[in-house]
């Protein structure tokens, strides 16, 4: 299923790019990210603990940066699995220069399997909620950095 959204980050585009290009900053803003370990150029092993109410799972998987066009476009591929099933996703971020601000257009294609498919009607809503938390965290970091 496909999900997309737009956000505004309150910092110039080159600063947003620098933050997105820093795996540790990304990891600290990704909801539930417990571990992000580089395994090669642009490849990581990740452990995520994602919980929506009682439905909580620890996902182990791989994260790969598949495209990087500074300072405007960034694409990642994620796959992970837990006892409850698997998740595969590709995401694209596009940054638009708006002077002191940066417009972010994001889209993702998410696939789930196993018992998780039972909740599939809620996955777009949940993904959007998690994406919102991710961008809020980035924005906070950007504003702290400029203060």
């Amino acid at each position: 299923m496909k999900i997309e959204g737009t956000e505004t980050l309150h910092a110039p585009r080159d600063r947003v790019w620098a933050l997105l290009d820093d795996p540790q900053a990304l990891a600290s803003c990704t909801p539930g990210m417990q571990e992000l370990r580089p395994t090669g150029p642009d490849e990581f092993e990740a452990v995520l603990s994602i919980g929506i109410a009682a439905v909580r799972g620890t996902y182990k998987g791989k994260l790969r940066i598949t495209e990087r066009t500074p300072p405007e476009r960034y694409a990642v591929q994620v796959e992970g699995s837990s006892g409850a099933g698997f998740v595969r996703a590709v995401g694209v971020l596009e940054l638009e220069d708006q002077g002191a601000q940066t417009g972010v257009r994001w889209s993702g294609e998410v696939q789930v399997g196993g018992a998780l498919t039972l909740g599939s009607r809620m996955i777009p809503g949940i993904a959007r909620m998690l994406a919102g938390q991710f961008f809020q965290c980035l924005d906070r970091k950007l504003q702290e950095g400029s203060a």
Binding site: V55, R56, G57, A84, A115, L116, L118
Partner: peptide, 13 residues
Amino acid sequence: SLMPLLNLRLARP
């Protein structure tokens, strides 16, 4: 709601 989530092991309290 909780029992099916437990039985499917989607919830693990």
